[in-house]
Amino acid sequence: MHRTTSPSLTMGPVYYLWDGPKWRDFHFRIADEAPVERVVIGETVCSKRQHFIEPHIAEVIERLEAAGKTVVLSTLSLVTLERESRQIRDLVADSEHMIEANDLSALGLLNGKPHSIGPLVNVYNAPTARLLAGRGATSICLPPELPFTSVEKIVAGAPAIAFEVFAFGRMPLAISARCAHARSKGKIKDNCQFVCGEDPDGLPVKTLDRQSFLALNGVQTVSHTCQALLGELAGLAACGISAIRLSPQDCDMVAVAKLYRAVLDNSLDADEAIMLLREIYPTAALSNGFHHAREGAAWVARARDTAHGRV
């Protein structure tokens, strides 16, 4: 599906533990001000956090839809407990909204219903994408690890699907049964007291030589660097990508969305946008290495290469 229209923007689910009011207000503002078409909501990382956002889900959906946004409900990415399985079954059975599958149980349960596939499901090639399309997937957000050479081939090889690429935010790199975040604060997962809520943008992990490296987000590990595909947007649009995903960080996400929209609309030069993005989100160095088949932490400038080892 080579679209003549420019890709739309999708706001991904908040991966971090933000308290209920912060989470609600963030989405209210996205509804009112951000030029995004789709918003994915729902706890994706840790089922224990569910109750923080639950009281606000209905009002957030209402506000987003009133603003003309499409709401998509995200499922958990690591499902091991009966309670977690039940929650996904109930969601699939009852939801009137599009669901984004982030693990194999959701994939299985959504068979035959239109659904989305999140970036935490392994889609590395077109045969896999076509198989998922045959089971009802209408859109797929590709894993951040994929190089552009693969993205192009997958899009070309599965024309019935709308593809999305993870273009802003710290990249989800791993998930574990063990909670490293709780562990780092002397707790265990079962008695974590939600200490991950103290770090709304992740807890920095540095090497012993003081290099910024990773960040902990509960049971999830994210990159220190922030994925920033801006100079790459034109190429992504040209190869037929339908949507660009922005993953919320603790910064002005409305400004991020406007910036990406402006670059997609050719009203802002990508190099200038990169400079502006560094001001909007100064916390982490930018990276785009995965896209260029390099180490994910690398920053490949359009004219020259530099790596972000030591910050």
Binding site: S77, N122, P143, E145, L173, I175, L214, T221, A293, A298
Partner: peptide
């Protein structure tokens, strides 16, 4: 330590991953 098949830590640092 991480859920298998869902870990990009290696490729984040080296460009090469298990997957």
């Amino acid at each position: 330590v991480m859920a298998e098949g869902r870990c990009s830590l290696s490729s984040y640092a080296t460009g090469k991953s298990p997957n």
